[in-house]
Structure formats: structure tokens, C-alpha cells
Simulated scan of single mutants.
Amino acid sequence: MQLTRPDLARVLERSLAARPVADVGWLAAPPPRARVLRERMDLEPGASLTSTADALFGWAVHRGAGLTIAPTGPVDVGVTVVQAVHVGPLWFTAPCRVVDVVRETDEAGFTYATLPHHPETGVESFRVRRAGEGLVFEIHAVARHDFWGSRAVPPAAHRVQDRVTRGYLDAARELSRAARPGTR
């Protein structure tokens, strides 16, 4: 947490050697006191799974949610990303590592796990799936408060997490509009 915009390149460099502090298994079996978040939203009718997935893998959903990000590359297993969110006068950085990637005919997405110095300890999964004639965007997150401030005031931490999640959903909807054939 800091009052000035963080130097994401420096935070990224510091995070490269770090190991995730949560396991992808948390999605199936959340640990005690973890907050489980599941969101699902229908995407724009006629959206292309390939184009929507390409936007997701290029971090467009995260940028569209209003996060400032510094990834080591497009989404792939082992890629490290540092995200920064501005809350009132404060900036928070959130380093993560991609631990799982799915790219199949009817589903595409990834999961990342938090690294040390993230305000939460947990994992978050982002998926685009075919559902009937359309596509859905799904977010599944499991996290515990790691930062003293979020442990002291959990409702405030939940509001920030909910705001970012709503941003992901809104960005995915907008990107799916752009991913319709004939809209490029």
C-alpha cells in the first residue's frame, strides 16, 4: 500500500522468483475462513470464443476493469503479472502467477495464484465457455485476507474485490461485443 503510483516494473522484478502462496486446489476445496466468489455472465450474442479468449489472454479484461498491470507476457503457465488498483488516495499492488491455462474448442481461460505481498492469499479463475448458442464468462475466486488492513476491515476489502470483479465482468461484456463477426 502506498500513496503514489507504484513502480510496477520494480514490483514485477521482485516477484519473479517468488512462489505462489495459494494452490489451484483451493477452487475445489476452499480453506477455512476463505471467501468464495463465483460470477457468471452471458456474453454478447454471436461473440467469437476465439476472439474473446484472445482478449482475455492478452490481459484486456484486466485492463478493461481499470487495473494497471505489468505482465511478463501474454497469459501462459508461469507468467507473472503485477496489478495495481487505486482505492481513494491509496495504491495497492497485487502480484500473481498463472498456474493453469485451458484452451479447448468450447472453453478457454486461466487461473492465477497470488504471490507474496498481494493483499489476499488465494486463486482466481477466468473462463469463457460455450453455453448453448452463446458464450458465458465465469469468474471463480477463493481468497483469505493477507494484508493487515483487509483483516481489520473485511467489508472494505470485500467492496474492493467486488468492484474489481464487476469491472472484469463489464470488460468481458464489452470485449465480447467487439468479438462479434463483422464488428472489427
Rank of each mutant, 00 (worst) to 15 (best):
A171I: 02
W59D: 07
V164S: 01
D7E: 09
D7K: 09
D7L: 10
P155D: 06
D76M: 07
P71M: 09
V101L: 06
V21N: 13
V77Y: 14
V24N: 10
A9M: 11
R103D: 14
F126L: 03
V164Y: 00
P155V: 05
L3H: 13
P119K: 06
L169A: 12
V128Q: 01
H62G: 04
T72R: 04
S51M: 07
T93M: 03
E13N: 11
R129E: 08
S15H: 07
P89E: 11
R151H: 12
R173P: 00
V79H: 08
V99G: 03
P20S: 11
V61Y: 09
P45S: 04
V102A: 07
V102D: 06
V160T: 14
A179R: 00
V36Q: 08
L43M: 05
A9G: 13
P30D: 12
I69Y: 09
R159Y: 12
R173I: 10
P32K: 07
A131E: 15
H62Y: 05
F92V: 03
T111D: 06
T52W: 02
S125A: 14
D7N: 14
R35T: 15
R129M: 09
P181T: 14
R38M: 08
P154T: 07
R151T: 14
D100T: 09
C96A: 14
W26I: 04
V128H: 00
L16Y: 13
L56G: 00
R33P: 00
Y112V: 06
V142W: 03
A55G: 12
T80P: 03
E120K: 04
T80N: 05
A47V: 04
R40G: 10
V101H: 04
L43W: 03
H118K: 08
L175P: 03
F126P: 01
R14G: 09
R184W: 14
G88Q: 12
E174S: 15
R166S: 11
R163A: 15
A70I: 10
A65Y: 01
R166G: 05
L37Y: 07
W59P: 07
A178H: 13
S150Y: 11
T72M: 09
T4I: 15
F92K: 02
V81R: 10
A143G: 10
G134C: 04
Q83N: 12
T68N: 05
A113F: 02
S125G: 00
V77A: 14
S150Q: 00
H158I: 13
A156P: 01
D100A: 14
A172Q: 03
F147I: 13
G167S: 06
W148C: 06
T52R: 02
Y168D: 02
T4E: 11
F110E: 00
A178N: 06
R14K: 15
S51P: 00
F137A: 10
R163Y: 12
P119Q: 08
H86M: 08
S51F: 09
W91V: 00
A171T: 05
G132H: 12
V75Q: 02
T121G: 12
W59H: 11
V142S: 05
G88H: 08
E133F: 04
A84W: 00
